[in-house]
């Protein structure tokens, strides 16, 4: 299989990339890791007239803390996030999700920005970023916008990104107090998309939950933020009963369909079990961190 014909450019500046994209945005696609786009081109599900390859633009793979955020450049590869020591120390939900995405070869190329822009409800990063209340930074012809992830993800393969815009980075608020997090993923085999995925982030003040963030993968037409469950947790003391109640509310927010990966009732039950398990794990991590300081 091979793609249909297209023009190709690999500019070395974002301005140049935006200019090329602006010429005929409706027929142009941005190429990042290519691990979703190239398979689509080969199947001819997509046949853009032009590809703008952003891989040669310097600086788009930043990974650093500044101004209260972790800045993740759009070109940060899944494997880069899996191996980074700052991420490992301070962003357990990200560190736990990264090595569970796809397989080692896909992780060497696939990017965080490409994943989010692709808008696949079975994508793992969407849920992680919902749990962490991240924002997506995009650049277009009229300047920059910061879009909360919950507004960025719209529907299956649909985001609020305009055709003439490029994702430049993802901003994750720095965790406060003692924190913990995890990504729990049920998959049939390495390299498969999630049957169900659950992202959990907790910030504790003593044993009181100062902030709880959750995200659900592959159980709806986009990654889901179960806000009822988050609200039930916030401001309360950690307890198994509270976690069970939050898990029940999260399962209620899930809207899975039956398919080759399993029946809807099963997936909903997995959401409930994983939220409970993820919260307990995040709480234990947060307590251990509090004990250390």
């Amino acid at each position: 299989m091979f793609p249909s014909r297209f023009d190709y450019s690999a500019p070395d500046s974002l301005d140049e990339a935006l200019a090329t994209l602006g010429q005929r945005a409706d027929e142009t696609k941005v190429l990042a890791g290519g691990q979703s786009l190239i398979p689509l081109l080969k199947l001819r599900f997509a046949a853009p007239a032009t590809l703008v390859d952003i891989n040669r633009i310097p600086g788009l793979d930043v990974l650093e803390e500044s101004n209260g955020h972790l800045r993740i450049g759009t070109l940060a590869r899944h494997n880069q996030l899996a191996a980074d020591s700052l991420v490992g120390r301070r962003y357990p939900t990200i560190a736990s999700a990264a090595p569970q995405i796809a397989d080692p070869l896909v992780r060497n190329l696939g990017t965080i920005g490409g994943s989010l822009a692709h808008g696949d409800p079975a994508g793992d990063w969407g849920s992680v970023m919902l749990a962490l209340n991240a924002e997506v930074v995009v650049r277009g012809p009229t300047g920059e916008r910061r879009i909360p992830i919950d507004d960025f993800l719209v529907d299956i393969f649909t985001t609020s990104l305009n055709e003439d815009e490029i994702v430049t980075e993802v901003l994750v608020p720095q965790p406060e107090g003692s924190f913990g997090g995890a990504y729990l993923k049920l998959e049939r085999k390495v390299g498969d998309f999630a049957t169900v995925g659950v992202a959990v982030h907790l910030e504790l003040d003593g044993d009181t939950i100062a902030r709880a963030g959750l995200g659900l993968t592959a159980v709806g037409s986009r990654n889901i933020k179960p806000t009822n469950a988050e609200n039930a947790l916030g401001g309360n003391k950690c307890s198994d009963e509270l976690f069970a109640e939050a898990a029940r509310l999260a399962a209620e927010a899930a809207d899975p369909v039956s398919d080759v990966r399993g029946p809807a009732t099963y997936k909903r039950a997995v959401v409930e079990a994983y939220v409970k398990r993820g919260l307990a794990e995040a709480r234990d991590q947060a307590r251990a961190r509090a004990g250390r300081t």
Partner: peptide, 9 residues
Amino acid sequence: KSCTLLAVQ
């Protein structure tokens, strides 16, 4: 995976 990278890349 070289089936999922363009030669020009």
